[in-house]
Write a protein that binds this DNA or RNA. Structure first.
Lengths: 142, 142
DNA sequence: AATTTAATGAAAAATACTATCAATTATGAA
DNA sequence: TTCATAATTGATAGTATTTTTCATTAAATT
């Protein structure tokens, strides 16, 4: 039931290669811990977990950024306001985060265009996009 | 046209006093720079601006946190993904941030309950709330 | 195999944030 | 007002986080 379950490693490798980057064993190791955990990790949790696999701290930082840039990691905020990264599919979507276990699921994109029009009228802004994050209790924690 | 324009200093003072805190000249200085700038400040911008007014770094950190807790500062993300703080009224609301000048305006709360119900059905989550931030171009930058 | 390019990781550097504590300032009671 | 109490400040030290550097290693290309 992972967000990115069934994502072929090949797709990720291709995405890296497309921009001249290499899908190294270290980068694969980083991806694997996220792919395997729907609650994701804070940076410090990830560096700790990956240190056990002999992946250096700088590499973790660099890889998390790369995965973010490719759209395979998204940033969310847990109950404590701490920043976590969770596996996701590329593209715009919204995240729904459990306040108890931090499990995150991706919501299919919801149409806020009506809202954006309303806000444009109210404020005079040309609204171009939004970030939306939901929080609540996941089925297991309910 | 500031978000918090016309907010009486008195109200802020009362809010501080209500919890046993004092509205000191330093805290007032912090508040004033935010009140006067709809684009808000990053922490480092704020510490720099306030150092010129002889407000110490620790006090800036402490005061920003206090103003946040009281609801008079809200955190937004600018075009570079950097965290800024902008003056706001207490309570739940959404922020609309200009990608060019970082000017932020507060949107009256918009009803996402229909969306939340839909997401509950789709995911099984008990949705309790959300964070929503819009970005676009403000009238001046359009 | 030789060459070129990218990635790694250890360490240093830079940045961000928090805690400590003596001195100062405000508040309230007498 | 004066004294006692409590909160605040800011300098500094301390901790944590993130980025950069660079020599080395590994991968891709020729």
């Amino acid at each position: 039931m992972n967000i990115a379950e069934g994502l072929p490693q090949q797709e990720l490798k291709n995405q890296f290669n497309k921009t001249g980057l290499r899908f190294t064993p270290q980068r694969e190791a980083v991806w694997r811990i996220f792919e395997g955990n729907p609650s994701g990790y804070t940076i410090s949790q990830a560096t700790a977990a990956l240190a056990a696999q002999k992946v250096g701290q700088a590499t973790v930082y660099r890889t998390i950024r790369a995965l973010q840039d490719l759209g395979y990691l998204k940033k969310v905020h847990d109950q404590n306001g701490e920043r976590r990264f969770v596996a996701s599919r590329p593209g715009h979507s919204h995240m729904l985060v459990c306040r108890s276990c931090s499990r995150a699921v991706e919501c299919s994109d919801c149409d806020l265009s009506v809202l954006e029009k309303l806000i444009s009228r109210q404020t005079g802004f040309a609204v171009e996009g939004h970030h939306l994050e939901f929080f609540g209790l996941c089925p297991e924690c309910s």
